[in-house]
Write a protein that binds this DNA or RNA. Structure first.
Lengths: 112, 112
DNA sequence: AGGTTAATTAACTTTTTGGTTTATTGCAGC
DNA sequence: GCTGCAATAAACCAAAAAGTTAATTAACCT
């Protein structure tokens, strides 16, 4: 799966977004991350694996704990992607202008 | 499903993102949207339904055609959501600062 | 060594997703 | 009123997602 798709699908789950929000406040262990949820520990462990495979978190090892840390790059990837569409909600999407902008934009970037 | 989750999961598919990119250039019919893909028409029709249910597109009726139009609100929803994490990739994520910022932020907004 | 805690793995279930093919609806134009 | 084209609906299938419980690994502690 392409990076943007895996980032977006990782973030499409509210549990995982809550984990991300928690990690924005600093590192945390698996049990700490699992505490707020009415869900088994293996379920949270799986969510973490999804986030890790998407590159959104990384994990260290400290004795028997695996502290999780938020990683910036994939979030930036999404921010960059969505930036292309900012015109739509700022200038009340004049379609002809957008079309011309888009043509220009496509000359030097991908179409993802 | 909450709005942010359905928006993100709708966008987690490269075919659907390509459709969005195409619609940024202006309205298009289902057949026009389907043309670039090596995929049956019903498959594209389903993708459009996913986008529509997420509010990312709306559809008019013009004789036998259903022109699709890009809608701004859900995209803005994502941009707003991700904005909270901008500190992570701009100022090289000093974790203590982020933590304090986050605490402030949580006092007046949700946790999604 | 034995027990406890942190976390993952395994095996399994259910639901959702993304695609197919075939059939159906709705409109246009001769 | 047929024929043809745009689009959706129906029925089906395979694979992936999200959860469960039970078992396992790994590290610490006394």
């Amino acid at each position: 799966m392409d990076p943007l798709s895996s980032t977006l699908s990782a973030l499409a789950d509210p549990t995982r977004r809550a984990i991300i929000a928690r990690l924005a406040a600093g590192e945390a262990t698996v049990n700490e991350l699992a505490a707020p949820f009415d869900m088994s520990l293996p379920a949270v462990s799986k969510h973490l694996k999804v986030l890790e495979r998407a590159g959104l978190i990384s994990r260290g090892r400290n004795a028997q704990w695996r502290p999780c840390r938020l990683e910036a790059a994939p979030l930036k990837g999404i921010a960059d992607w969505i930036e292309r569409y900012r015109d739509f909600w700022t200038h009340g999407f004049d379609r002809l202008d957008s079309y011309l902008d888009e043509l220009q934009r496509n000359e030097k970037s991908d179409h993802e």
